[in-house]
Design a protein around this nucleic acid. Structure first.
Length: 404
DNA sequence: CTCCTGTGCA
DNA sequence: TGCACAGGAG
């Protein structure tokens, strides 16, 4: 549903005249400049499915001879369906990603059993190994379905075309890219439109060095017009920040010794490091009891609940005196928001990974900089007076000194 | 969204 | 040796 009923605008999902012109320029370029690749000689859905599966993981030049071999050995869907998995894997050998070969085989067997190749992208999606991209590619190329096939190349081409500042992998970016890719589809030749965009990405709109002078649609490309096409797509955000909320317990004995806890060797990070006794309220650490504590929201229930939790975890009797400070600490993509509380303990404290240390001994331990940070803050707060400050001195203190 | 898979590259 | 990639799956 669209188009040229006199409107030049680009209402959402609609097509303006400019789109039509870009489509034609893109197709003309593709007709003229496309590489001669073996899978482009047939629109048979099975053949398209095989090539798309191979191309998911391997460059076209490498795939070309292997595709020919594969199609010689398994020329049609029924032949492949009848083959043993070992035969298929043997033919796939050297291409890697054997799980994909197994899924292709399983999908082909399902299709053969059903007696008919699924006619649309939507139906194909339910087959093993066929995701959004592959379904759209096969449906558009083999069946002329008007659906954009978005692979990494298309994502880059469109991001540049729009000078899109966001991350095309994220939900909003995916939507933006899909809508624009959809606009560039020619209704008569959606398969060629899709392939043209992918070809453009593979040969012209290259990741590092776009060759804009060779691009058939540069006149409408915002990235090109911006003068810095290579800066799109925007650098992908690093791994999503993991947020952790911890409570650090500062517990100092009358003789000045501090209670420390050694992190498990199986901890997701900071393995084996000594730290203040720590409650991990949020994050993926902690043992079973700790996860239970989280689920019961014990800490939100107040200090007495915290006392109980400490007793359960470490034994003895606990009394949380108050909050000393809150601090932030970042370790690569993990961000720790820590509340530092002071507590006193009495009775027998249990645990093999729990021990008392004099301040001078701490410097020799394996510890994270979070411990140092916390100790400085804690000693600072606790001293609360010139005499005490001189005694532990955050600047001259053994911990700070050892770190230098 | 987050994880996973092998591969290829730095 | 660790990370980026490129899709699919859960």
């Amino acid at each position: 549903m669209t188009a040229d009923s006199g409107d030049t605008g680009r209402g959402r999902g609609g097509r303006g005249r400019g789109d039509r012109q870009q489509q034609q320029q893109l197709l003309a370029w593709f007709d003229d400049q496309q590489r001669d690749l073996p899978w482009r000689r047939s629109r048979d859905p099975y053949s398209v499915l095989v090539s798309e599966t191979m191309l998911q993981q391997t460059r076209a030049e490498v795939v070309a001879p292997r595709f020919i071999r594969f199609m010689t050995r398994f020329p049609d869907l029924e032949t492949l369906a009848a083959a043993q998995p070992e035969q298929v894997l043997a033919e796939w050998s050297g291409l890697g990603y054997y799980q994909r070969a197994r899924r292709l085989h399983a999908a082909v067997r399902q299709i053969a059993a059903s007696g008919r190749f699924p006619q649309g992208a939507e139906q194909m999606r339910s087959l093993p190994g066929i995701g959004e991209y592959t379904a759209a590619a096969v449906a558009s190329i083999a069946f002329g379905e008007e659906v954009a096939a978005i692979d990494g190349n298309v994502e880059r081409v469109i991001s540049r075309r729009l000078a899109f500042a966001g991350d095309p992998k994220l939900a909003e970016g995916r939507r933006v890219v899909r809508e624009e890719a959809q606009r560039l589809l020619d209704r008569e030749r959606p398969g060629d439109s899709n392939q043209a965009l992918m070809e453009l990405g593979a040969t012209v709109c290259l990741p590092r060095t776009p060759r804009c002078r060779h691009c058939p649609i540069r006149s409408s490309c915002q990235g090109h017009l911006s003068g810095r096409p290579e800066s799109f797509p925007a650098a992908r955000r690093r791994r999503r920040l993991e947020r952790h909320r911890w409570i650090l317990v500062f517990c100092q004995r009358a003789d000045g010794a501090l209670l420390l806890e050694r992190r498990s060797d199986e901890a997701p990070f900071l393995r084996g490091a000594w730290q203040l006794p720590t409650l991990e309220l949020e994050g993926n650490g902690g043992d079973a009891a700790e996860r239970e504590a989280r689920s019961q929201r014990i800490v939100e229930a107040g200090p007495s609940a915290l006392n109980q939790w400490l007793r359960r975890r470490f034994g003895g009797r606990w009394n949380v005196d108050g909050e000393l400070a809150s601090l932030r600490h970042a370790i690569t993509y993990r961000q720790i928001e820590a509340r530092l509380v002071a507590a006193t303990a009495s009775g027998r404290i249990a645990g093999e990974s729990l021990d008392w240390f004099q301040l001078e001994e701490i410097a020799a331990l394996q510890r994270s900089s979070l411990l140092d940070k916390a100790l400085e803050r804690a000693l600072d707060e606790v001293s609360d007076g010139a005499r005490e400050t001189r005694r532990y001195g955050t600047d001259r203190g053994p911990v700070a000194a050892a770190r230098r």
